[in-house]
Structure formats: structure tokens, C-alpha cells
């Protein structure tokens, strides 16, 4: 079944076409959401939302871009909305923590393990995802689509509904900011490790 046929059958509400569409794109959607949101449950929720949106909006899909690009656009938009909601929740949690309601603020440490990372890279990848989380949303999405999903600049720019040159600039800034964050992170943590070692030696002495 080619893309045109798939779209036609999706418009007609054919369930097997919907399943074929899900089988084709669910891993891409899930992986993108997981890399951006860094939470398994949230990624699953977003994947559900994306395919429900595909079902709802396929009739309004104008086919100016490929089906894949359209689905990536829905995914990035859903992730963007989710991140905004998450931030407003965090703000509220901060306020409640000021008034001593609970300990809602989490420790800011690398914690996310992407299941697709090779074992020998786990430690470094955890730090990279931690740094990725510090980027502005657009830069985070550009980096994810390009480096984790492996889309070309043209495809990723179309998915983010921006020009290729704007996307390239976004990606460049993302890389620069990541380097800065990683540099700060390692400066602090390597220093911490050294000072811990010195203290440990002094204690032994």
C-alpha cells in the first residue's frame, strides 16, 4: 500500500489502514516523545494523543507534506503543549513548597535512561539527556529530530514548520548550548569528585 492509498483508506475510516499507519509510525512517535519528555508514561500518553489526532484530523490533511512529516508535526506540537503544562504545574509546586505543603521539587540530577542507548554509553547519555532538558523547547525538539530520530534538516524543518535555514540555526544553537551546559556540569562534578577524594584521603590520614 503506497502513501496515497493509505491516506485514502484512513479518510474512509478503514481500521486495518489505521493499524498499518500505527505500525509504521508508532515507534517514531513514541521515541520522539520519550526523548523530549524523558518519561515513559508521558511518552505513551502523547503517542495515544497523536494517533487519536491522526484519526480525527486525517480529513483535513492537505498532503502538502508527507504523512510522516505531518505525524512528526503533530507529535512535536503535542510535546510542546505537554512541556508548557508541565512547567505551569512545576511553578505551582514551587509555590506550594514555599508554603510547606509537600516536597514537590525534585533534585536536579541526571536520571533518564533512554532504552535505545548502548550499554557502554549509558552514563554519558544520561548526562546528555540531562543537558538536553536544559535547552529551550524548540532547540530540544530540533536536536531530537535531527540527532535522535535521524531526520534530514529538510524533513525536520518541515516537521517543525520552519525554514531549513531557521532549523539549521536552531540546531547550531542547541549544540552550542549543550556544550556549555555539559562543560559546566563536568566542571562541577569532576571538581566534586576530586574534593570528595581529597576529603576521603584526609580522613584516612
Amino acid at each position: 500500500m503506497n502513501q496515497q492509498e493509505l491516506i485514502q483508506q484512513l479518510i474512509q475510516g478503514n481500521e486495518s489502514a489505521y493499524r498499518a499507519c500505527f505500525n509504521l509510525f508508532s515507534d517514531r512517535v513514541h521515541n520522539t516523545a520519550l526523548s523530549i519528555l524523558q518519561n515513559q508514561q508521558d511518552a505513551e500518553d502523547i503517542t495515544q494523543e497523536v494517533f487519536i489526532e491522526v484519526y480525527r484530523s486525517i480529513k483535513s490533511f492537505r498532503q502538502e507534506a508527507s504523512l510522516q512529516t505531518w505525524i512528526y508535526t503533530i507529535t512535536t506540537n503535542k510535546c510542546n503543549d505537554h512541556l508548557k503544562k508541565q512547567r505551569s504545574k512545576k511553578r505551582f509546586a514551587f509555590l506550594t513548597s514555599i508554603f510547606g505543603d509537600d516536597d514537590a521539587l525534585q533534585h536536579d540530577k541526571p536520571h533518564f535512561d533512554h532504552p535505545g542507548v548502548l550499554l557502554e554509553n549509558k552514563e554519558h547519555a544520561r548526562v546528555l539527556f540531562f543537558a538536553l532538558n536544559k535547552l529551550p523547547d524548540k532547540q530540544k525538539m530540533a536536536f531530537t529530530l535531527s540527532r535522535i530520530e535521524g531526520l534530514s534538516n529538510k524533513e525536520a524543518a518541515a516537521a517543525m514548520q520552519t525554514s531549513v535555514s531557521a532549523f539549521e540555526s536552531l540546531l547550531h544553537r542547541a549544540n552550542e548550548n549543550l556544550k556549555t551546559t555539559l562543560s559546566d556540569y563536568y566542571k562541577n562534578n569532576l571538581q566534586d569528585g576530586a574534593s570528595f577524594y581529597k576529603t576521603f584521603l584526609l580522613m584516612l590520614y
Binding site: A43, V127, L128, L178, L182, K187
Partner: peptide
């Protein structure tokens, strides 16, 4: 430090796609 940064940035070079749940 530059080596750490380089290795960190390269840690996702051969990343595999995380699969969605089969029950989804």
C-alpha cells in the same frame, strides 16, 4: 573535560529507537 564533552555528545550516535508498547 573536552574528551568528556565529546564522548557525551557522541553517546547517542548509534542510538536505537525506543519501541512503543504492543498494547498501545
Amino acid at each position: 573535560l573536552p574528551e568528556h564533552i565529546k564522548r557525551t555528545l557522541q553517546s547517542i550516535d548509534r542510538i536505537e529507537r525506543a519501541e512503543a508498547s504492543p498494547f498501545l
